Amino acid sequence: MLQNIRVVLVGTTHPGNIGGAARAMKNMGLTRLVLVEPRVFPSPEADARASGADDILASTQVVASLEEALTGCSLVLGTSARDRSLPWPMLNPRESGVKVVEQAAQGLEVALVFGREHAGLTNDELQRCHFHVHIASNPDFSSLNLAAAVQVLSYEVRTAWLAGQVPVNAQASNQPARESELATMDEMEGFYAHLEQTLVAIGFLDPEKPRHLMARLRRLYGRSEVERPELSILRGILTETQKAARGEPHKRKDQ
């Protein structure tokens, strides 16, 4: 089950933090590390800080964008150190551990996303996450080392897993079984791009004055756990809406 969980580090500046994160992950049984545009990797400093987690560094995936890092994920949690202009569903570390294990136990791909050492994740990056996670550190000294943040959330994942707070297999769950698989983040990103194009085409969205519209829609659909057949319906509606906006005749599905 833990193999379904990936740790994603975005724009890491110091290679030592990559090694420290790998060590923290291995301590807690997590093995999948993904780096988005690290400044330096591979690096002897990362190797030194890994202190025996060389196997995780050896299998680390390096990608060019957060979108690529989240391919296949049905649940994404992003760490946030401060309040944002647009409120987002928020979890504390203990809640996040339970949520991650609950989803991973159902065979779903899950990502824990951590931002840059100096600035964290951008608003756009955080809007690609279903939930934000805030570590309640000392307000008088709230700066938390990246590897330490990875350690905190990895520990909570392991705690939830060991405590058996969720079933190891989804068939034992008290929750009703899903009819279909959840749409993945890359599939949802395609939908959001399609939705934005359609809203612009019908004049509902002014790209010069977006006023957080797409961010609010991301938040809406992100908490809805959209299944793949449902996403196909939504994409079909958008396609027909675009045709109508261009004045093209509508063709019924049964014709």
Results as ranks from 00 to 15, higher is better:
Asp186Cys: 06
Leu182Asn: 10
Ala163Glu: 13
Val168Lys: 10
Arg158Leu: 08
Glu189Asn: 04
Ser180Leu: 03
Asp186Lys: 01
Ala177His: 10
Thr184Tyr: 00
Glu181Cys: 06
Ala183Phe: 03
Asp186His: 02
Trp161Met: 11
Glu156Leu: 07
Trp161Phe: 12
Leu162Trp: 04
Pro176Tyr: 02
Ser173Leu: 04
Pro176Leu: 02
Ala177Asp: 11
Ala170Tyr: 06
Ala172Pro: 00
Val157Leu: 02
Asn169Lys: 14
Glu156Lys: 10
Glu187Ile: 01
Met185Glu: 14
Gln175Val: 08
Ser180Asp: 12
Ala183Asn: 09
Gly164Asn: 08
Pro176Gly: 09
Pro167Asn: 12
Asp186Glu: 11
Gln165Ile: 07
Arg158Ala: 06
Leu182Gly: 10
Ser180His: 11
Pro167Leu: 12
Gly164His: 07
Glu181Met: 05
Glu181Arg: 14
Tyr155Lys: 10
Leu182Thr: 09
Val166Pro: 01
Ser180Ala: 15
Gln165Ser: 10
Glu189Pro: 01
Val168Ala: 11
Gln175Asp: 14
Arg178Asp: 01
Ser173His: 04
Ala172Tyr: 01
Ala163Cys: 08
Arg178Ser: 08
Glu189Cys: 05
Pro176Gln: 04
Glu189Phe: 06
Val168Asn: 10
Ser173Thr: 10
Gly164Pro: 00
Ala172Gln: 09
Met185Asn: 15
Ala160Gly: 06
Glu189Asp: 13
Val168Cys: 07
Thr159Pro: 04
Arg178Ile: 00
Arg178Trp: 05
Val168Ile: 11
Leu162Lys: 13
Met188Glu: 07
Arg158Ser: 06
Pro167Ala: 15
Trp161His: 15
Gly190Tyr: 00
Ala163Ser: 13
Gly164Ala: 12
Thr159Asp: 15
Ala163Trp: 02
Gly164Met: 07
Gly190Pro: 00
Ala170Ile: 12
Ala183Ile: 00
Gln175Glu: 15
Pro176Glu: 05
Thr184Phe: 00
Glu189Lys: 03
Asn174Ser: 11
Ala183Trp: 01
Gly164Asp: 09
Gly164Val: 07
Pro167His: 11
Ala172Asn: 10
Gly190Asp: 05
Ala172Phe: 02
Gly190Asn: 08
Arg158Met: 09
Glu179Phe: 04
